[in-house]
Write a protein that binds this DNA or RNA. Structure first.
Ligand SMILES: [Mn+2]
Length: 554
DNA sequence: ACCTGGCACACACCT
DNA sequence: GCCCGCGCAG
DNA sequence: AGGTGTGTGCCACTGCGCGGG
């Protein structure tokens, strides 16, 4: 039933109940694709929700879209719903909300204004109220005895009733199943309707889905929740480790898990628990973990041992960035213990120095103006241009309706974009695109596609920095052999090799040549991945230079 | 796909 | 009365 | 001074009204 998924479309904002239609259609979509993932109780809950009258459903949606689980009814003002009390009572009858809700004092006071808090203070405490909302909240919350009471026991003359939402969890599950991630929410519908976000239209895949089963959903959900709590420092890294799900078979979930494991390990290192951190780093596959492992070893282990391991890794590691990091550690530690090292010529980029008036805006922009001439136009492009050309060249592959790649209409990328077999699974389409690069109409082809796709969300093209003139000049001045070389390296690791491009590009319209320019202001320096691109550029005859800017004395 | 990613920048420490 | 941050809405 | 490592800040759609200082 391909029809069921293609029915997902953002409702028109002309509709007063557009948000209800959006959420309704998500519930239908999720039940169609994921009915087996729900428990019987959850299915019953969804039935209950779907069978409510339209006004009650709309009210529920309004509550769901607000922050938190506690609301006061005097703050709900929805003309399209009208009288809100009837729907609220309906929702309460089905236990989807509590209304009027009993509450603890802390739950009440977070919804009150300062003047109201002072009234509560007069009722529950002695003496003059503390100054300022924070102090008032703090001292009132000390009076919370953990018991929930009807509102009028806390505040007999309260001018409102409280609502507490009882079904947030099921909507979180619906959201996660529909979007396939933890961060998109209902606003995605509105933003696309408003045109602030555009997504590629892909034939959606009805046979596959983001989560294969409940275990995967629960694992991902736990990882997201732990990650957020850890970030907000609501839990310790040890608590993260204690609750971290087991190794996941689904690669994209496993990636998330490893990343969180790394974050927790890093936090433990910062606590000074070096041995523990080292053990964790060793069994963490996340890219950064290996690099931190090396640096930590250098810090706490006997140098001969470090030098031996780093020396080995600098030759054997699978990843170039690991080898590079290992080499740095190796050179340092071996030198310290007096080992003589074979002289290795390290790549150093071509340098240039200019002095400019200190600007009020960014050094990249003032440098761009410095270089810019009519016949030698210079643009600030950073990661917009070359990855942008990559996207335009391989667009059909990036958005090919490969099984399991696209589930919902709000994806900026294929689900498997960063998997190792991404290119292999699209080899035919990619081969065609490679071929197109060597055709005489390649430029036209790219420009046509640009007009068609500009604005469509994707991980490569930053549309705001591109325009037709820039693309046209780029396609004229950059030989397709150069582009091929760049695209090839991008394909070798789409996650790591989509950034680190130089700030500026300057074309010479007279000679039909170009140059990439990385700007470095005072105190700034090349990052490792920028240097790797520069080394690669040199290897392939791609003209690139690092330009150090200093300020004229005023 | 926003608790992240990509960048410059600030500061500490080393030689 | 001003400015700022936040929650909310489209 | 220059090389390093490490942590931080900014930017994410736009605009309104409210509450707080
Ligand atoms: Mn730069």
């Amino acid at each position: 039933m391909a029809a069921a998924s293609s029915q997902i479309r953002a409702a028109s904002l002309e509709e007063p109940l557009y948000y209800l239609y959006n959420i309704d259609s998500v519930i239908q979509w999720v039940r169609h694709h994921y009915e087996d993932i729900f428990s019987a109780d959850e299915q019953y809950l969804l039935d209950t929700i779907q069978q409510l009258d339209i006004t009650s459903r709309a009210t529920l949606c309004r509550l769901i879209m607000r922050r938190g689980e506690w609301f006061r009814d005097d703050r709900l003002n929805y003309p399209e719903i009208g009288d809100i009390n009837t729907p609220l009572r309906h929702l309460a009858e089905h236990d989807l909300i509590h209304y009027p809700a009993v509450c603890r004092l802390t739950e009440l006071i977070t919804l009150c204004r300062v003047a109201e808090l002072r009234q509560l203070w007069a009722i529950h405490a002695e003496g003059p109220p503390p100054q300022g909302k924070d102090a008032l909240l703090l001292q009132l919350s000390a009076l919370d005895d953990g018991i929930s009471r009807p509102l009028d026991e806390w505040w007999p003359t309260a001018p409102f009733q409280l609502i507490s939402l009882r079904c947030q969890a099921i909507f979180d599950i619906l959201k996660m199943l529909f979007f396939g991630n933890a961060q998109q929410d209902w606003s995605a519908f509105v933003l696309t309707e408003l045109g602030h976000q555009r997504y590629e239209k892909v034939d959606l895949d009805d046979q596959h889905r983001a989560f294969a089963n409940r275990t995967e959903l629960d694992a991902f959900s736990a990882i997201s929740a732990l990650g957020e709590a850890h970030y907000l420092q609501l839990i310790t890294p040890d608590q993260v480790l204690a609750h971290l799900p087991k190794k996941q078979a689904q690669l994209w979930i496993e990636y998330r898990r490893q990343k969180l494991l790394y974050r927790a390990s890093h936090a433990i290192e910062r606590q000074g628990r070096h041995q523990k951190a080292l053990t964790l780093y060793r069994r963490c596959g996340y890219r950064e973990a290996k690099i931190r492992q090396l640096r930590l070893m250098e810090k706490i282990l006997p140098l001969p041992l470090v030098a031996r391991y780093a020396g080995w890794l600098s030759k054997r590691a699978k990843r170039a960035d690991w080898r590079e990091a290992a080499e740095k550690v190796w050179v340092r530690s071996a030198r310290k213990i007096g080992q003589s090292l074979p002289k290795r010529q390290r790549f150093s980029p071509q340098l240039q120095y200019i002095a400019l008036e200190k600007p009020s805006y960014s050094v990249e922009r003032v440098s761009r103006e410095h270089f810019h001439q009519d016949e030698k136009p210079c643009y600030y492009v950073e990661n917009a241009l070359l990855p942008g050309l990559f996207a335009l060249t391989f667009w059909e592959a990036l958005f090919a309706p490969v099984p399991g790649a696209f589930f919902n209409p709000f994806q900026r990328r294929a689900a498997d974009l960063y998997q190792e077999d991404f290119a292999a699974r699209r080899s035919d389409i990619i081969a065609k695109a490679w071929h197109s690069m060597h055709q005489p109409n390649y430029s036209q082809h790219i420009l046509t596609r640009y007009r068609d796709k500009a604005g469509v969300a994707n991980p490569f093209a930053i549309w705001g920095l591109l325009d037709e003139t820039l693309l046209e000049q780029a396609l004229t001045c950059i030989p397709s052999a150069h582009l091929s070389a760049i695209f090839e390296r991008m394909f070798s690791d789409l996650r790591q090799h989509s950034s680190g491009f130089p700030d500026l590009i300057q074309f010479n319209l007279t000679t039909g040549t170009y140059q990439l320019i990385e700007i470095k202001g005072p105190g700034d320096r090349l990052q490792d991945h920028q240097l790797r691109w520069l080394a690669y550029f040199e290897q392939h005859g791609i003209p690139a230079v690092v330009c150090h800017v200093s300020w004229h004395q005023p």
